[in-house]
Design a protein around this nucleic acid. Structure first.
Length: 275
DNA sequence: CTTTAACCCTGGAGGC
DNA sequence: TGCCTCCAGGGTTAAA
């Protein structure tokens, strides 16, 4: 479920509640996630105050005075606010309990993670899971020149280069296809062959695609964090090409194609998008 | 160094 | 109904 817009929506949701409050209890019901949830995590954070809720790429960061809790939603995770007396459902693996608020991490596939980084272990930015991440799509570092420079010499196709996350973060499988459609760039184009001009279009397209998703996703997913019910209304978000194989392109009418790149599906319009 | 593919896991959809 | 295969929005890791 979670691409960057959902992770950011989740962050905004928890950021309205958690900061300034002591975490009374962290309950781990299932520690077998992408990596094991540290056995001593609960005692490390018990009664400690959450200072702020940040995001780096698709990692949620709960900042404490003495360290940071890293949360990743993986492929199927969601973090939602629930009533204090609401029963846990299947696949509710971790619980954050505050005096008057409660959150559950629900993750059927358990590709998500809940980890801890101690302040004394060096800068958070040097954490092995964060250190290789590319620039934030909404930050000042994402520029046409930056993309052009980082693509230089790469023979990897542009779709996989975007998805890899080491150049720019937050462009998941759906929005990689959508951003390339918007930029009218063929997904098989070697990244190193993109002109500065096309990097400019790509740059704008990435931002526009993600920010559109954040706007509409933020409203469809407003309840993502603060209500009961099913958080997975993600497919409702309109896609120009994603999951539209053999349907007409909304711009030109040609049939959308599906290909596989790096074992992930890519969708594109063979007429609108050029090498 | 770059690129590829296996893998972690559950569940839903569709074929038979 | 059941059983099978395929597919899924993530990213790390080892191997080529």
């Amino acid at each position: 479920m979670p691409e960057l817009p959902e992770v950011e929506t989740t962050r905004r949701g928890i950021a309205t509640i958690m900061p300034g409050r002591p975490l009374r209890k962290l309950a781990v019901y299932e520690p077998r996630m992408r990596w094991p949830v540290p056995a001593d995590l609960s005692e490390r954070v018990a009664n400690r105050v959450v200072q702020s809720c940040e995001r780096r790429g698709k990692y949620l960061l709960l900042i404490f005075e003495h360290g940071t809790m890293l949360i990743h939603l993986g492929m199927s995770g969601s973090l939602r606010r629930v009533q204090l007396d609401e029963p846990r459902r299947k696949h509710d693996h971790v619980e954050w309990l505050f005096d008057d608020a409660r959150f559950l991490l629900h993750d059927p596939r358990r590709f998500g993670a809940v980890l801890w980084h101690d302040n004394q272990e060096g800068s958070l930015l040097e954490h092995p899971l964060l250190v290789r991440l590319g620039v934030e799509p909404f930050g000042p570092d994402l520029t046409p020149a930056f993309l052009h420079d980082r693509f230089k010499g790469k023979r990897l196709n542009i779709k996989q280069a975007l998805l890899a996350g080491d150049i720019v973060v937050g462009v998941g499988n759906i929005y990689a296809s959508e951003a390339l459609f918007r930029a009218r760039i063929h997904p098989m184009t070697p990244a190193g062959r993109l002109s500065l001009k096309r990097c400019e279009r790509l740059c704008e397209s990435i931002r526009a695609t993600l920010s559109d998703a954040l706007t509409s996703g933020g409203s469809t997913l407003r309840d993502y964090v603060n209500a009961t019910g099913n958080p997975g209304s993600y497919f409702d978000i309109h896609a120009a090409v994603y999951d539209r194989e053999n349907k007409p392109c909304k711009a030109c009418g040609a049939l959308i194609r599906r290909i596989v790149q790096g074992q992930r599906a890519t969708y594109y319009c063979p007429r609108c998008q050029r090498h």
